[in-house]
Design a binder for these strands. Structure first.
Lengths: 206, 206
DNA sequence: TTGACAAACGGACAATTGTCCGCTATTATT
DNA sequence: AATAATAGCGGACAATTGTCCGTTTGTCAA
């Protein structure tokens, strides 16, 4: 059978992504419209929507590189801390995640709003919770929490449930509000979050 | 000076609210459009937008009664528990808030998405965090947390900060995901949240 | 080459959100 | 009562999101 592919398909994808990146940088993620991206890139609406059904999908693609870097860092750190106390490893990973969330706040906000709305017809599954980044972060956190729980060093809790809650607590809107409105620095936020969400789970060994 | 008021202004407001309530009940909050509400109510677009600039504002108004009831319940409960240990009061309030959030999930989701987007020009202030319900919940939680902290019964943390984080952790999307996808009941969710977010803050007095 | 066929482009179109402006209704003033 | 003045109604209009369909592009077979 025939399996035709446009030879410029991949180039169009990159053109769209590059245009979006530029426009986002210049005007801010919120104010740039899908139409504007297509028009600027010189492609049809459908050509873009066929690749990215929503702005959130496009943002996910744009953040993909950063996210892979985060993944690699987390894995390197876990390898380096192999054998260290679970509390220390958990804090290390948590810190990285918060830094990433706070740093990529504008893209993450757009992703969150877009994918949580689920205006698509398959409203049965919340796309946000099925996205690869969410699943990876949840899996990693839940794994560490389970290890701590199994080791008997913590109070009794459900690791998977708690991982969901922790990610919810890191909502980019909230973190941004805390820094914009109250002036908390990233380090303040990291410190307080660890102090509030992580350490108290561990039974003090005094 | 002249201060003319249409005598039917209040009636129109109630007509809009009633129409919205009916349509939301019948078709679901997500699928009903502002245009549809105006058309069904038989009023112009601007007549509705002048009252409620976004769907989130309309939802806020619709939930207002329920929210006032929550407030009264919380205050009654705090009065009744006057003198009880702070941990007990905190858990009691927290439980009420979670029940409310889970029960009103569909309206709260719409409010959250709408007010967090802040497509309005005054994007300087996140409307969601300035809404009366948010401020009340935050104030109440922060007050109780501060009391616990001052009494020296807890680990060291910032009450206001922690109250923000706790509310973020109760994001309706997340709670709904937990019940839809994993089958947690409201009671499961309440139990786990208290176990994860509240109790660990308190130093065990053994 | 040439013809057939499908993947995929692009612009037109529909739906929703949000704004603007001419007109109506109401009330204070005379 | 008649008039003036303005709050506020309502529909038309603009912008954005998302879809559909006629047309183009490239591959395979003869």
């Amino acid at each position: 059978m025939v399996t035709p592919k446009r030879k410029d398909a991949q180039q169009l994808t990159e053109l769209i992504l590059e245009t979006a990146r530029d426009l986002f940088t210049q005007y801010g993620v919120d104010t740039v419209s899908m139409h504007q991206i297509a028009k600027t890139a010189g492609v049809g609406q459908a050509t873009m929507y066929r690749r990215y059904a929503q702005k959130g999908d496009l943002c996910l693609e744009l953040i993909d590189d950063q996210f892979n870097r985060l993944r690699i860092e987390i894995e390197a750190q876990l390898e380096q801390l192999d054998g260290a106390p679970i509390l220390e490893r958990l804090i290390s990973v948590f810190r990285r995640i918060i830094m990433f969330t706070h740093h990529e706040a504008s893209l993450l906000k757009a992703i969150h709003v877009s994918l949580v709305q689920s205006r698509c017809l398959n409203a049965d599954a919340q796309q946000f919770f099925c996205s690869q980044p969410y699943l990876y972060l949840h899996g990693t956190l839940a794994g560490l929490l389970k290890e701590a729980s199994d080791a008997g060093q913590t109070v009794s809790f459900d690791p998977a449930f708690t991982a969901h809650i922790m990610i919810a607590a890191l909502a980019p809107h909230t973190l941004q509000h805390l820094s914009d409105r109250y002036g908390y620095t990233t380090d303040d936020i990291i410190d307080q979050l660890i102090r509030t969400l992580i350490r108290p789970l561990f039974i003090s060994l005094d």
